[in-house]
């Protein structure tokens, strides 16, 4: 509820009485409607340790995204298009659904890797430059998912 109220304030950026009251009423209404959609462990939303690790995750994600972006940039601009695309399987050790969803989103946000589907513990990832070690699921998992799992596990599990 508070979040929607703050979002309203940020979006309208008017601090006169009318705007604030209308925002408060709308925030209460939306909160009542949306309260059914909350995840099961609401109390985790208020744990500062998890928020700290979420921040760390965002920082490491930004680092890897920029790095991979330059890699993809090089591949696109190279005259011979040095790509070796393929869809590989990745086994994730994360348990909860939210963690898996965030892992898939992080993988997709990184240029060069693109999650196609999640079936149980397996992620199917389209990779723009597959290594030689095709059957080595361990190495592939370490390359694609390992760097995000460390922080995400501390946020969600």
């Amino acid at each position: 509820m508070l979040i929607i109220f703050v979002l309203w304030l940020l979006l309208t950026w008017s601090f006169d009485v009318q705007g604030v009251v209308a925002g408060a009423i709308l925030a209460v209404l939306f909160a009542l409607v949306l309260s059914k959609l909350l995840p099961p462990h609401v109390e985790r939303l208020f744990s500062p340790v998890r928020w700290f690790w979420a921040l760390m995750h965002i920082i490491s994600l930004a680092f890897w995204v920029v790095l991979a972006n330059f890699d993809v940039m090089y591949r696109v601009l190279h005259p011979n298009l040095p790509i070796r695309p393929g869809i590989v399987k990745v086994k994730t050790t994360l348990k909860s659904d939210e963690a898996k969803a965030f892992l898939a989103n992080s993988i997709t946000l990184t240029p060069g890797t693109l999650t196609i589907d999640i079936i149980d513990d397996w992620l199917y990832v389209h990779w723009i430059n597959v290594h030689e070690s095709l059957e080595d699921t361990e190495a592939i998992t370490r390359d694609i998912a390992g760097r995000f799992e460390v922080t995400l596990r501390r946020v969600f599990d």
Binding site: V72, M73, L109, L114, H126
Partner: peptide, 26 residues
């Protein structure tokens, strides 16, 4: 711009998604 060029140059839908959406997003 690199994302748009990738959208033109790369060979199939999945590779185009890789270059286009990600570079353009960043």
């Amino acid at each position: 711009l690199v994302g748009a060029i990738g959208l033109i140059r790369l060979p199939d839908v999945y590779n185009r998604l890789q270059a286009a959406t990600k570079c353009v997003t960043l």
